[in-house]
Design a protein around this nucleic acid. Structure first.
Lengths: 327, 327
DNA sequence: AGGAGTTACGCAAACGGTTTCGTGTTGATA
DNA sequence: TATCAACACGAAACCGTTTGCGTAACTCCT
């Protein structure tokens, strides 16, 4: 058994160039010695790693893990592996992680902006990467500042719909519980809420909009808010806010949904197991992840016309899941 | 500016071999042209990828994401990236994912066994990998069948402690809600529960042990269980079981914790936001992840004595977090 | 038997770096 | 001035694989 390296390589790839018997011998040997080609060497050769980099703000978070599951699923089907970095809502970590991965470790990025990045409004690290020709897909927390593919949900429309739904059920004093609006998703949700009120002849009342810190204790703020206002429905931009508010009003003796209705965002585990169960906006994170992965991989593999730059923004339709917190 | 490739390489690495001025020139050029060495080439050269592979059964799962966060955190600090694959509780996927990564893409594995793998009791894919010399660290769902580093929590002890705690509060008819015991963690938790009963003069009653399918609807089974038995406390091996059972008994009109106490495992979001809030076992997943990553990276970097095979099993101490579901 | 055409295989470059070792230049010392 | 470190740099091998191209050997035809 003495054949050259190149013959082995060709034999294993079933090249027509190699004789039938030689191929068989080589393949038998390969099986016997459990030979596996070295991925790194292959990556070096064809400048494709078959890895995609995912940078998300948080991993212990229902929505992001759901999206991740979609990404991982699709990527794996296509023979790609996924490298995850967590920015921890920090701008610096986001930058460091991108630089770490951009040196050839991955074929493209899928990411959702950290809170700090959105506040600072600094996207140079993203621009650098795209200028280097590394494909990038942004999801959920996106920005108009950088030219790339994006996938988002129809935050405005679904908020509008949710709010309208509350109105249809006779609610008139509808509060919005949200974060600071440097989060573009929060902003859009607020706009949908406001528009729905106006379209239905209800004056938007700034006092009924409660902005909570992204995390940290806010019980006293919430108690004060519900003490100060007579509210019969609440739209919350996430589950936690919704659950926390529900507990606050329950403590006050209000009945849900008889006295006050609740709708939240993020159809996570909390929504399903809360008492009462929470009517919520399903963001279809898994689909979002799949779509993002698909867009990225197409970009990666169609490098022929990579300069066309016909970037797309896919919009995933959210749906309202009705449970017991609304009538 | 004409220096050889090797000089550039050395200059960028600040080699003592290169003259001060040449180094400065080269480094200036590198900055100017934004040069970044190609990670793949480096990996190929020194046979180290600085990637670690993590294979977990599920990503949309509080405990696993918590562990992952610990892994990612520690690994990143050490300059490692993390490639995640989700086995989806499937044996085949676990095998495929391992093979995909074992071809040089990673320096070592951290994993938790899929449900199916534990049922089948087939660990050849793990053995193969370790025999190839790829370091492996198992966490939480481990097996004695494969020789490698492991990190687990003291399931037996904490169950014992939790059960004893219930007894101390005057509970006598204590149920255990668990999964099929091919999960070694469930088995150990059951043992701790039983031992605590016996040590306190309470006869272990098989009828008070409810085994639920790992997922899927089980409401009717649960209702029947609580109808059939007079129970004053319940130990559940996870959050979901606890919450589901709490709702079942609440529906029956029982008060928690006055009539019946609950303790769960996995100190996740559900435990904190349930009504009443759930007393639960904190498994310190993040610490577990950090420890696992540390063990793995030490193995990876100490390849000198890689044949020593002094494998360790680290035990993380779980703690009981008391909330309103126990008196 | 000699030339043409196949067939089957090997050589060597390339991917992008690192690193060992050798060597030319310099300055100091005897 | 001859000798010799010390210093600064370059040539080349190497990591594991792929692939274009050259070529030996064989078949076939005339």
């Amino acid at each position: 058994m003495d054949v050259s390296i190149s013959t082995v390589s060709k034999a294993l790839k079933n090249s027509e160039e190699i004789g039938r018997d030689t191929k068989e011998k080589v393949q038998a040997f390969a099986k016997l010695y459990n030979y596996k080609p070295n991925n790194i060497a292959i990556s070096l050769k064809n400048k494709r790693t078959k890895n995609i980099g995912v940078i998300i703000p948080d991993i212990v978070h229902h929505f992001f893990t759901t999206v991740f599951r979609g990404i991982e699923k699709y990527a794996n089907e296509q023979g790609y592996n996924v490298i995850v970095c967590v920015s921890d809502e920090s701008f610096d970590k986001e930058v460091i992680n991108m630089e770490l991965l951009a040196n050839g470790s991955i074929d493209g990025f899928i990411m959702s902006l950290s809170a700090e990045t959105q506040q600072k409004n600094d996207f140079n690290h993203l621009k650098e990467v795209t200028e280097q020709g590394v494909p990038l897909v942004l999801f959920d927390r996106v920005t108009d500042e950088v030219a790339c593919d994006k996938v988002v949900i129809d935050d405005f429309e679904i908020s509008y719909k949710a709010t309208k739904n509350l109105i249809k059920n006779g609610r008139k004093r509808i509060a919005l519980v949200t974060t600071e609006n440097y989060f573009n998703v929060s902003k859009k949700r607020a706009e949908g809420y406001t528009k729905a009120l106006m379209d239905n002849g209800i004056a938007a009342n700034e006092a009924l909009v409660l902005k909570l810190p992204y995390n940290g204790e806010s019980d006293t703020i919430i108690d004060a808010f519900f003490d100060a206002h007579d509210i019969d429905a609440v739209l919350c931009v996430n589950e936690i806010f919704a659950i926390t508010c529900m507990r606050a009003v329950q403590k006050k003796g209000l009945r849900i949904p008889e006295d006050i209705s609740f709708i939240g965002f993020t159809n996570g585990i909390l929504s399903r197991y809360a008492t009462p169960t929470l009517t919520t906006v399903e963001q279809h994170g898994e689909i979002m992840g799949e779509v993002a992965a698909k867009m990225l991989i197409e970009r990666v593999e169609d490098d022929i016309d990579e300069e066309e730059e016909n970037f797309k923004t896919e919009v995933i339709k959210a749906t309202l899941i009705k449970r017991d917190s609304t009538s």
